[in-house]
Design a protein around this nucleic acid. Structure first.
Lengths: 126, 126
DNA sequence: ATGTTATTTAACTGGATGGTTTAATAGTGG
DNA sequence: CCACTATTAAACCATCCAGTTAAATAACAT
């Protein structure tokens, strides 16, 4: 069995599963509700399997409601996956800023100063 | 062939490859330099293959220097992988804050106000 | 030319993944 | 009990993946 973090990334390495996660960002849903957009491309058992992958990876949790199984995101799990990048965010963003301004000045065909202050990616500190 | 984003996540879904990326955050390195810490666990061709996975995923680039191949991170590539989460960061952090304070009050066994201000995770805006 | 160092390719293996179809399980409502 | 709905399990298949060993390629040094 793989380590948890690898399982999480592996779970994210599939467009169907990412779409399911994005769906669940909007709110919890039963298995069939989640399956609905995919049933033209794959069978229900395939959907179940994808959900199991997400569950084993700790990204989704299921609870029972009468016959239905209700799935919802496990945000803590997603957080853990993001932490791999988060861990290096500082170093990384610094480099990306340099890259951003390089690309910008290259596009603008002018050699402006080394740091560009406008940056949609930079997060506001709430 | 898979979509780029899936390839990136798949590339990250392996502890060896993540370790390689973390190594490259410290600076570029030749294949053998990267391989060195792993050679007790696997052969050189295995390392080459891992690097190829990272390269195909757009996370690493290789340039040639005499006999050596020098590998370095492609930060733009990493950024793209992170954007999947970034895309939902706002919604997500809000929920995590709620979760944080819930866990905190649960641990502290006291029903404090709904928002706890101390939070190591929250990033300072540089 | 020959050998040495650095890296990749080729061919192969075992095990995981993503899908299928058919059948089983479980709860709800006559 | 019986039928219906919702979901999963089992068995199977094709492909991909991570590793192996042995051989090929490439650049350099003598």
């Amino acid at each position: 069995m793989k380590d948890q973090l690898s399982q999480k990334f592996a779970a994210l390495a599939d467009p169907t599963r990412r779409a399911m996660i994005l769906r669940l960002f909007k709110g919890e849903a039963s298995v069939s509700e989640i399956a609905e957009p995919f049933l033209e491309q794959m069978s229900l058992p395939a959907v179940t399997k994808h959900l199991q992958v997400l569950e084993r990876a700790g990204l989704v949790v299921k609870t029972q409601d009468t016959q239905r199984r209700i799935c919802s995101l496990n945000l803590e799990g997603l957080k853990e996956a993001n932490e791999f990048m988060e861990q290096y965010r500082f170093m990384w963003e610094q480099s990306l800023d340099r890259l951003d301004s390089y690309l910008k000045s290259a596009n603008a065909k002018k050699q402006s100063s080394t740091r560009s202050p406008t940056n949609g990616r930079k997060k506001q500190s709430k």
